[in-house]
Amino acid sequence: MSVLELQDVDVFYGDFQALFKVSFTVEEGQTFACIGANGGGKSTLLRTIAGLQRPASGKVLFHGEPVDGIAAHNLVTKGIALVPEGRRVFPSLSVKENLQIGAYGGRKGDWNIESVLELFPLLRPLMTRQASSLSGGEQQALAIGRALMSNPLLLLLDEVSLGLAPVVIKRIYEAMVHLVDTGTTIVVVEQDVQHVLTVADYVACFLEGRISLEGKPADLSSEAITAAYFGM
């Protein structure tokens, strides 16, 4: 059974339709990449899967069970974790407290503060610092670590490389490879196509709320991706 399945999902913000009949499936252990320009509906897609946004029609199935309409805070305990766009760490909390909050839902699993620090050793000396004082890269590592503390079966990553230095992006993607090795299923949204193609098993390009191109990275030519990306 697939971990995640979307069937004809329509999502609106008021009168504005952000997603049009989006359907795809993500298999266990897969890394599914959503690429595309701004306004393509990629972030809306992740917000919908995480329960922050309700589809007007269509179905979201998690391990075969319909989860659309379930509140975000209940989906965390089912094993869906979203690293939101812009990192959104809790600025007034310390790094340690941010990680502790990640475990609030109480899901059992292998992730704990120690294993997160092994994945992101850069956080170790920062544990007592206020999260607001961290650099962008450190905050991104913290945001991913915080999401892992909930022991997710499905990890949703929204624009993890946005605004970060290339060396930091490289480190984040190395961590992602490690996550894939542990069997975590990942849906990643990126504007930076080059990096994401190195980790993705499957790519879907979003254009104005629809999937304009999809397939395995090896099967897609860069010309086709460029065309789908810009809608040419």
Partner: peptide, 13 residues
Amino acid sequence: SDDREAAELMGIN
């Protein structure tokens, strides 16, 4: 207090 929606994503109602 810091971020209601991010807290929601941590499982906080």
